[in-house]
Design a protein around this nucleic acid. Structure first.
Lengths: 327, 327
DNA sequence: TTGAAAGCGCTAACAG
DNA sequence: CTGTTAGCGCTTTCAA
């Protein structure tokens, strides 16, 4: 390469990295040559040599979901600030695509991976690369993890509905095998219990993670059959499906039915009506995951695992009111 | 490494890649050793050797914006299907971050870059890597590009408003230096002209790309001062700001004011009221960008440049009605 | 059918 | 202060 500068290949490295004192003349020559030929150092070679790629990976189930894209945004921002780039992979809620992604990222020598798993992780998928589990935590996996206080926040939301007088609260859930979903349900149940109410199991409807249309139909059917006075869908997709179902059924919110959604986003208060939601601190989640990973990279985290649980907030807007008379 | 298998390093490569016939015995031995030690080939070394990284880059101004995240989603899906991974970078609407990202990705030897530029590109940022400009196309840059028919779709939307009887249509714009914004404005103007109407320049308000709050304020102020009967914000951020402004002013849509937004997303028809929008074919945009890039990689695209323009559709929902009497 | 060895572009140890 | 060189882990000639 830039022997154009009439110097050794090593010298180029030295001036470009400032890793050694170089005389002004050579320095100049190198810089000029670099400029002239638009030389850009090959980061692949550099990575191979240094055994550092300055790359992180993040694997989410669905890039298009605003919650996950917000997670990616925060993760990327944090990484960039520390001089890292991030490879984004989607598992499409498919375990084998997830496995592929994990293997592929590991092979690419990313220095850390943030994973929102498609299923609860029971054993870490190889200890080759630092991993942080995001959002969908397992009950007791000994690995770094960042999630929210699912139980507490669902409890809070449910209590709010109970305080408004609701007794029949429909809870659309996605996949009961996921611990975070279970936790949210626990919170819901605890709020009921606390009031001495018995939970009607049929009010808990598992909708799966399939196409929105099917989810919507299932929820619509449940609303009609069970006549709840409130609905508390516990993911943002379920919230979307719920609102569609309600719209389709011609019900008014909150007069006919109150709704508390899950996850906040910029458009929530522009919905009809402004949606009361459990807001996850998504920015903090993404950044925290990144920080934990970089911490591991630098080796300045001990043996113990980080198990961060961030609180959610209840954003009260217009979609909750007292239950309909005679319900 | 897997001399554990008692074979040469090359043989491992052969069996793992199937790049040469290997006797069943050795084959077995290699596979077993690989399995035993959980060996994962180092893709960095492979990339260096093969001069192929199987990696694409995409640079967008804001990962959190649903339009861009949908773009990323489609781009990633297409890339993954072809065995590529994608590095996602955000420019945060900042030219120098964009430049950084471009340089960095180039250094990482990505095989192609999709770029939504912060400013119109006037000369390609180095010919080192195939580039496709996405969404924010320049008027006449000789480079691969994928965008939408901005002029035609804004024309369509405006004509729809005119047909409803609107004459004072406020058009919040982000940054008039962007060609795609200019094109949308052209479409708006053409629709007016066609009806023999003279455009009131003050109805075109440039709001910049700053914080939402400022944009909202500017739009609210314009609505109050100019008393339009319809608003046609020409990006999704402006649409968000517009709806907030309207909410704040206590106006009813469409009784007091009609709205056509830009960009569709899953929640559009759950807004209050269901939002009529110009829908960009965002999935197609992302996939097309990816396809063009991979085409270039394979060298099966000639000298000429691709300049794809996809049509938008007008999704008519409830936010447009006839103008208020006496307006 | 297999192995030895060169070399991808870089950094860092070692010499001068 | 600067250059030479080994070697990161892989693929791929070239020999055997």
């Amino acid at each position: 390469m830039a022997k154009r500068a009439g110097v050794s290949i090593a010298t180029v490295s030295y001036v470009l990295n400032g890793s050694r004192k170089v005389s002004p003349e050579l320095r100049e020559a190198v810089l000029r040559a670099v400029e002239e030929m638009g030389y850009i150092p090959n980061a692949v070679a550099k990575s191979l040599r240094e055994q550092r790629t300055r790359t992180l990976g993040i694997v989410v189930p669905d890039i298009g979901n605003p919650f996950f894209s917000a997670l990616i945004q925060a993760f990327e921002a944090c990484a960039r600030e520390q001089g890292y780039r991030v490879i984004v992979a989607s598992s499409e809620e498919d375990g084998s695509l997830e496995e592929d992604a994990l293997l592929n990222l590991t092979g690419r020598q990313v220095e850390g991976i943030a994973l929102v798993p498609t299923q609860d992780l029971h054993n870490p998928p190889s200890k080759q690369v630092p991993l942080v589990v995001l959002d969908r935590l397992s009950r007791s996996l000994d690995v770094d993890a960042v999630g929210v206080e699912n139980e507490a926040s669902a409890y809070l939301a449910t209590r709010f509905l109970l305080e408004q007088g609701h007794r029949r609260i429909l809870v659309p859930a996605s996949d009961l095998r996921l611990t975070n979903i279970q936790e949210r349900i626990q919170g819901y149940l605890r709020a009921l219990e606390e009031r001495g109410l018995k939970a009607d199991p049929s009010l808990l409807v598992e909708c799966g993670r399939g196409p929105l249309e099917g989810v919507r139909r299932r929820i619509a059917e449940a609303i009609q059959r069970l006549q709840p006075t409130a609905v508390f869908p516990i993911t943002n997709r379920l919230t979307l499906a719920t609102l569609r179902a309600i719209r389709e059924l011609g019900l008014r919110v909150p007069q006919d039915l109150s709704v508390i959604g899950f996850d906040d986003f910029e458009w929530s208060h522009l919905l009809d009506p402004p949606l009361t939601v459990v807001a996850q601190p998504v920015e903090a989640l993404g950044r925290e995951a990144c920080r934990i990973l970089l911490q591991r990279v630098l080796g300045l985290s001990g043996q113990g695992v980080y198990q961060v649980r961030l609180p959610c907030t209840l954003e009260v807007r217009g979609s909750v009111g007292p239950p309909r008379r005679g319900a």
